[in-house]
Design a protein around this nucleic acid. Structure first.
Lengths: 190, 190
DNA sequence: ATAACTCGTTAACTAAAGTTAATAAATGAC
DNA sequence: GTCATTTATTAACTTTAGTTAACGAGTTAT
């Protein structure tokens, strides 16, 4: 479990035993049951999440309807906007599966970063990378049709289709559950 | 001109005169004519862009057709994925207007950051902020119809409708120019 | 065990976007 | 200034997504 974290960090910086121990002393690891809501709309939280095992999901309520916008699975991280801007969250985050998470707090990060400037470097590299990746995801979404987006998802995250309900996938693809169902049956006919 | 940069930086960190002078010595400011292509598909570049005045645009070619995915205007920044991953760029970047830019290079940033760790902190804060903002833009895009996206754009970036051609706006909204034209005439009738 | 919900699918219908083509106005090139 | 190209609009037609409703299978609660 710790190994997963340290392996991940080693992609960016190398740590001394001292630094490892500081991280371990922070009580970052949390095991969370499926269905647990980590963040609610309107809530102010300074927590960030990093998924070690399992899946978390962000969603809005639009006209009383749930609209799923993202799934975060193994090795993916989410810092909600509210953690940076101190404004209430616009969306919910919940666990789609029993999930093993690293939950870190903005204040705690501040403290660790000021003690070990190395972490600033890692965070900078990691967020710049995520920003560019997310930009490309957004671009792909914009430049493709629902059908292409579905096929793209099949290629890139085939696991999601197994682990997540269809109607959540549908809004993740920007369409209704009925459209997704239809689209799928259209594809098998070909 | 320098003032714009330093005002921006002061939102994150405070600089000494020494640090300011190092920045100024780097020859970061560039005045670029409308139509200039800053980055081509397939090209490897380590440059990042920050718009002081004007507008730059990123676009793909899909089946020989230009597909615009983003506009960056005053105080907005773009680090192309290729600058981080050393892979060839998937898209083009060009100037939509005569533009005043800060162009920084990854190697140069590395050097400045190692000399002034403060910059790492600033970059971390700035990219984390952008990441969260872009996430929300993506969420809004997913959860709304082309019409809502257009109305949303009218609210949030009304200037874009004046400074950018319709057909580029259309693909920015994820639709064809014909659909945008129709959508607009549908709206005026209401 | 039954009742109430949720989930995925299908169908019929409506609304809107994609496609193809034609046109006119604006822009740029020579 | 003329010609060619680009841009925005409109129209007719096709395709696909949204909407509403119904159905059965699976789940959950009591």
């Amino acid at each position: 479990m710790e190994k997963i974290l340290f392996d991940f960090i080693s992609k960016y910086i190398s740590l001394t035993d001292d630094e490892r121990n500081v991280l371990l002393s922070l009580n970052l690891f949390h095991s969370v049951k499926k269905g647990t809501v980590l963040l609610k709309e309107g809530q102010k939280s300074k927590d960030s999440y990093f998924v070690l095992k399992g899946c978390i999901r962000s969603y809005y309520f639009v006209d009383g309807e749930e609209r799923t916008t993202a799934f975060y699975t193994e090795m993916e991280a989410l810092t909600p906007a509210c953690a940076l801007s101190k404004t209430p969250s616009g969306y919910y985050i919940s666990c789609s599966e029993d999930t093993l998470l690293i939950i870190s707090n903005a204040d705690m990060e501040e403290e660790v970063n000021s003690k070990f400037p190395k972490f600033d470097i890692m965070c900078r590299m990691f967020s710049a990378e995520l920003l560019a990746k997310q930009r490309i995801d957004f671009d792909e979404f914009k430049t493709s049709s629902p059908e292409q987006r579905y096929l793209n998802l099949l290629q890139k995250r085939p696991d999601l289709l197994q682990r997540v309900p269809q109607h959540q996938l549908a809004s993740y693809l920007g369409i209704t559950p009925q459209s997704l169902s239809r689209l799928r049956s259209r594809l098998v006919k070909k």
